[in-house]
Write a protein that binds this DNA or RNA. Structure first.
Length: 196
DNA sequence: CCGGTGATGCCCT
DNA sequence: GGGCATCACCGGT
């Protein structure tokens, strides 16, 4: 990947709308380092959330839980939900405005065996075709909340954006407010896109 | 293949 | 105390 794209696009996350950032993140790479081993995956499905959006954690203002979403773009926002699951987001937009992109599904590139271990034997698309499945596969939990994604042990590498012809949008999943908004984006035809 | 449901804990009103 | 940006498992088609 040309280094120029990396810097240009990492910087873009701060200036794009949440939806445009969600589209930019499709096709990009996440690298997780775990005790000398590496897992790398491609992002294939995302959802956009922002402060003016009733479905967003930041809609009602800043709290202890969501404060990372108001921080600088490029941080990880990891939250705990349903009593047992973690979800990974990339903070986007300008500092002070609470916005983030939920990573909903990824496709394995390398380190599949370690992912299977982390998922207690699950295989194939079931490894990481959902927001809590992928955090389990990559061993991501609250300790990575507010982590700077430009460096290990969880690194986001942004290269060339996907052409819009390869991207579809749809309603978001698992929310009860602003359900009609088309703020979910995924790579057309990709097998790892979530099914719920 | 589909819908229903239990698990399980933290956040916010 | 209600509601979750979910998953896995169950049983009936």
């Amino acid at each position: 990947m040309p280094a120029a794209w990396y810097y240009i696009n990492m910087h873009k996350l701060a200036n794009l709308s949440a939806s445009n950032a969600a589209k930019l993140l499709l096709g990009q790479t996440l690298i997780r380092t775990l005790g000398g081993q590496k897992i790398s995956v491609k992002i294939v499905e995302t959802e956009a959330y922002h402060q003016a959006d009733p479905a967003s954690h930041t809609y009602s203002g800043q709290t202890e839980r969501n404060h990372v979403m108001f921080g600088p773009a490029g941080l990880a926002y990891v939250y705990f939900t349903y009593g047992m699951h973690y979800c990974l987001n990339v903070v986007v937009g300008r500092q002070g405005y609470g916005a983030a992109v939920l990573i909903r599904a990824v496709e394995p590139i390398s380190g599949v065996e370690l992912m299977q271990e982390n998922r207690s034997g699950k295989t194939g698309v079931n490894l990481c075709n959902g927001p809590a499945k992928l955090t389990q596969a990559l061993s991501v939990d609250k300790t990575l909340n507010s982590h700077d994604l430009s460096k290990p042990p969880l690194q986001l590498q942004i290269g060339v954006p996907l052409p819009s012809s390869q991207i579809d949008s749809a309603r978001r999943i698992g929310i009860s407010k602003a359900v009609e908004e088309l703020a979910r984006f995924y790579i057309k035809g990709n097998l790892y896109v979530s099914t719920a």
